[in-house]
Nucleic acid binder design. Structure first.
Length: 269
DNA sequence: AAATTCTCCTGAAGGC
DNA sequence: TGCCTTCAGGAGAATT
């Protein structure tokens, strides 16, 4: 499931090959994604993709007079393929660049493709996103300030995109392991020191995942079609009952907010 | 206001 | 073998 590292790996692949290139057409095979894909996506021809940025898990293609906002939902992937490559069952959208095309595959259709003429930060989907986790703005002091009067557990707080943008279930679990903090700990009870440790753990985890090409559990592949390998290095995610890689105690699974949380009762307090 | 629950969807896995 | 049920999950929307 694409979280920040997978989106960033995708962004880098697309930026390398698409920045500065002209759009020659668009195909919408299936408009029923998270929100209906506007027919206008077919008529972007003539515009040039100036740059490709990321905000949380959103990709922003700057087309000069507007932005294409892309989200991979939980099963989406974007690939660069030779134009004319036969479409798979779940290949819903193509954006053509002459001999190359950008193709969105998304079996569960939780993804999004939207056009906006506003500054993208002002779009309703981006306007309320929290701090960018790999930015300087996220440090121990900031995290402590965000957590101090919140009654929720730290894990669902990390996954709340209005607080921190882009950290999903996998990386919230892995970051909490690295920080030695239980997912069930009340956010407001975390000391400044533990928040500093957690902020560092989040950055370390996300950076390591990006370097590994992201995690490929079911659907994710980078824009060149290659899967990531970070899933081989998980400390806790989907390891319930198996021994902790650090201390040997069995990893435990609990459910918080209808999401699985995994932790080592020996290493995390 | 914050916290919690519901919702979209499909493929995989498990039960019988 | 095959049908049926259950589950996972991003994050906005609805509800408490």
């Amino acid at each position: 499931m694409p979280e920040l590292p997978e989106v960033e790996v995708t962004r880098r692949g697309l930026a390398r090959r698409l920045a500065g290139r002209a759009i020659s057409g668009g195909v919408v095979r299936e408009p029923r994604l998270r929100w209906p894909v506007e027919p206008g996506v077919r008529s972007l021809a003539g515009r040039t993709v100036r740059s490709i940025r990321r905000r949380g898990k959103y990709l922003l293609l700057d087309c000069g007079d507007g932005h294409l906002i892309l989200h991979l939902g939980m099963s989406g992937s974007l690939r660069l393929q030779p134009a004319g490559t036969a479409a798979n069952k779940h290949d819903h959208i193509d954006l053509l660049f002459g001999d190359t095309m950008l193709r969105l595959r998304d079996p569960r259709r939780f993804g999004a493709v939207l056009w906006t003429a506003q500054p993208p930060e002002a779009h309703r989907l981006l306007a309320h996103l929290g701090v960018e986790p790999l930015s300087r703005a996220l440090d121990g002091a900031r995290l402590h300030a965000l957590a101090r009067d919140r009654r929720v557990a730290i894990k669902p707080l990390l996954m709340d995109s209005r607080t921190i943008a882009g950290v999903g279930n996998i990386y919230a679990n892995e970051s909490l392991f690295r920080a030695g903090i239980r997912p069930t700990a009340r956010a407001s009870r975390l000391s400044r020191e533990r928040c500093a440790r957690l902020a560092r753990a989040i950055k370390d985890t996300l950076r390591a995942a990006i370097r590994a090409g992201g995690s490929s559990l079911r659907d994710f592949v980078a824009s060149d079609g290659n899967p990531g390998t970070f899933q081989q290095r998980y400390w806790v995610y989907e390891r319930a009952g198996r021994p902790c890689r650090r201390c040997g105690e069995p990893i435990r699974r609990v459910v918080q907010g209808q999401r699985s949380s995994y932790f080592c009762p020996g290493c995390q307090r």
